[in-house]
Amino acid sequence: MSHRRGLLGFGSRSSRPEAQSSSGSGPYISATPESGSPPQSAAASGSRRPKGKSVAQIRAECVRRDGRILFQRNTVGKLIEPPGISTCCTNSFKRIPNPGGYTWKLTPPTVQELYFEEFKKEFTWDPEDEADVKKMWLEKARKRYSDNMSEYKRLLKQKTEAGETMETPLGMSDTFWTGLKAYWDQDEVKAVSRRARENRYSEPDGVGTGISRHVGGSQSSRILQQSLLVDGEVPPNCI
């Protein structure tokens, strides 16, 4: 007994229609009448739209304008830090004299502006991004300046304990190096350094519990968490 096929081509046949290849012109059929669910195209069955470039891709591409690296924003408008800012800051510290700038706070604003002018020679940005770029540069420059001075201080201590003399670092004048060593030798500067070291290696929860270096601004994360207590419960994002 023969079986007549229905109007849509589905009779009593139990085999499913073959999925169309990627080279076909029609949509891919993800369901058949036998399954009890309506046919769906690939777009309706959960395929995602193509996303924008990731932060890593944007950083890796290093788009240039006039030979300088261009600051860019991601798909949600956040300014992305391009590679090379730290190196640029360190090089500008070595090229531009900074008499008396033993810390970033003691560095005159005029010298800081000269550092920023050096930064402009290697990076560029759209005019509306000027404030955000300068804020990002300032944070990076302040951190790199402090790191550089800490490294010089560590090397000086290491050489002194070994009975050796440390030469003036590259890019630093002899006068500045002499003044910097005298600054570090002041009692009040030593006291601040000692307190900072003790704080870094303190154990807030008691001896043997380990040190805590996670901070949230001027307050530690532990103090910040306590300040967010509501009816004795810690918010989920603070656990």
Score class of each variant (00 low, 15 high):
C88L: 05
V207T: 10
W177C: 02
R195K: 09
S21D: 13
F116L: 05
I223N: 09
D187H: 09
L228W: 15
F71K: 00
L180D: 03
I85R: 03
Y102N: 04
S202M: 11
E34M: 12
D185L: 06
E198R: 15
F116V: 00
I223W: 05
R13K: 14
K78W: 04
N148Y: 09
A191I: 07
P38I: 02
S220K: 09
S35R: 10
K159I: 00
G232F: 06
S30M: 06
A162K: 15
R213I: 10
Y102T: 10
L170Y: 14
G216S: 14
K53D: 04
S41N: 11
G210F: 13
S193A: 15
T75K: 15
T124S: 00
E81R: 13
Q226R: 15
T32Q: 08
V189T: 08
R142L: 04
K120F: 02
H3I: 07
R95W: 05
V133T: 01
W104C: 00
E198P: 00
A42F: 08
L170P: 06
S35E: 15
M1W: 10
S150H: 11
G171I: 01
T75L: 07
K53V: 03
A196C: 09
S220Q: 07
Q57E: 15
S30F: 11
L229E: 11
I223G: 01
D132R: 05
T107D: 06
Q158A: 14
Y102S: 03
Y28A: 07
G77Q: 08
Y102K: 02
P108D: 02
S15W: 04
R142I: 00
V215F: 08
H214S: 13
N98G: 01
S54E: 12
V76R: 09
S12N: 14
G210S: 13
I211Y: 15
L156T: 04
M149D: 03
Q57C: 10
M172V: 15
G36V: 04
G232T: 07
M136G: 01
R4C: 06
V76M: 09
Q20C: 14
S2W: 10
S30I: 01
L156G: 03
G11S: 05
K140T: 04
S45Q: 10
F176N: 04
E203W: 07
E122G: 02
